[in-house]
Amino acid sequence: MAEYNTIRTGAGVRTAQIDEGLRAHMNKVYGTMSVGMLITALAAWAISGLAVTSDPNVTGIMIREGEYLTALGQAIYVSPLKWVIMFAPLAILFFGIGPIMRKASASAAQLGFFVFAVLIGLSLSSIFLIYTQYSIVQTFLVTAVAFAGLSLYGYTTKKDLSGMGTFLVMGVIGLVIAMIINIFLQSPAMMFAISAIGVLIFAGLTAYDTQRIKSDYIAHAQVGDQEWLNKSATFGALSLYLDFLNMFQFLLFFMGSQE
């Protein structure tokens, strides 16, 4: 934020132009993120619909009274393929999508983000088999309200949030490790703690990432880094998309009603 204030002080006549560009940039970030969330939701809902049938003769695997897994459902929820589906988005996020998007054109980077959103939808589709649709929608709306407030705070606050970054990233790494361990332990108490801490971490990341996106735009716009500006909205959208998605999943643990 100190950099942001310094730039604005010395920008002179360019301040109004940068402010106008910043508003357009943030609108594009939120718009791209919203499209990504819509793609994820539709993909998860559609795949979950294809994974369930009322015909017991298809696989014979009953998930609840009168509903059975289809061959697709058996493959993605029961077979060893479920581990690939579970960890593939995480592997892509850490080892693939970032470097690929940085080397790609602006349109290719955006397409990569939308493809990633589909893969996330596949990995999330099981929530429609576990939780009621009402509780999923309710949790989504609560997450949306919380996200909007936190993002607005990050955008408008004069407080420098950059010091939170390292701490929050370390927290995310710790969460991932704890979640992997709990896959084998299956401890409800540990899952409760993970979910509670996860909500707090991604709430902080929402505010932090919003301020970072704003500050980065100001810095690059001042020097006219057009190549970065062309792809920056997609990078920003990806960051906020992940913050929203993770906060939603952790809140669903508390608010979701199971079928």
Rank of each mutant, 00 (worst) to 15 (best):
Y4A: 11
Y4S: 13
Y4G: 04
T6H: 11
R14Q: 15
A16S: 13
A16R: 12
I18T: 03
D19N: 15
D19G: 15
D19H: 14
E20F: 06
H25S: 05
V29Q: 07
V29A: 02
T32G: 07
V35H: 06
M37E: 02
L38V: 11
A41G: 14
A44R: 03
A46P: 03
A46W: 07
S48I: 06
L50Y: 04
P56S: 11
G60R: 06
I61S: 01
M62R: 13
R64F: 04
E65K: 09
E65N: 10
E67A: 07
E67K: 12
Q74R: 05
P80L: 00
P80R: 02
L81G: 03
I85C: 11
I85H: 03
I85K: 08
I85F: 15
P89E: 05
L93H: 06
F94C: 00
F95Y: 14
F95M: 13
G96E: 02
G98F: 02
M101A: 13
A104Y: 08
S107F: 11
Q110A: 14
L111Q: 00
L111K: 00
G112S: 01
F114P: 05
V115A: 03
L119A: 09
G121H: 14
L122N: 07
S125A: 15
Y131H: 02
T132R: 10
Y134I: 13
S135T: 15
I136M: 04
I136C: 05
I136N: 00
Q138G: 07
Q138K: 09
T139M: 02
T139H: 07
F140S: 04
F140P: 03
F140Y: 06
V142S: 03
T143K: 05
T143D: 05
G149S: 00
G149H: 00
G149C: 03
L152W: 00
Y153R: 12
G154D: 05
Y155A: 10
T157C: 08
T157N: 13
K158N: 15
K158D: 14
L161K: 10
M164K: 10
T166W: 02
T166V: 14
V169F: 12
I173N: 10
I173G: 08
I173E: 08
I180D: 01
I181D: 02
N182H: 11
I183Y: 02
Q186E: 12
S187C: 06
S187H: 01
P188I: 12
P188Q: 10
P188N: 12
A189R: 13
A189C: 13
M191A: 14
G198I: 08
V199C: 09
I201P: 07
I201C: 01
F202K: 14
F202D: 08
F202L: 08
G204Y: 09
A207D: 06
Y208E: 14
D209F: 02
Q211L: 02
R212N: 13
D216T: 12
Y217C: 07
A219M: 11
A219I: 12
A219L: 13
Q222D: 11
G224F: 01
G224A: 04
D225R: 13
Q226H: 04
F235G: 06
G236M: 11
S239N: 15
F244D: 01
M247F: 01
M247A: 04
M247S: 07
F250K: 15
F254L: 11
M255R: 08
G256N: 03
S257Q: 09
Q258Y: 00
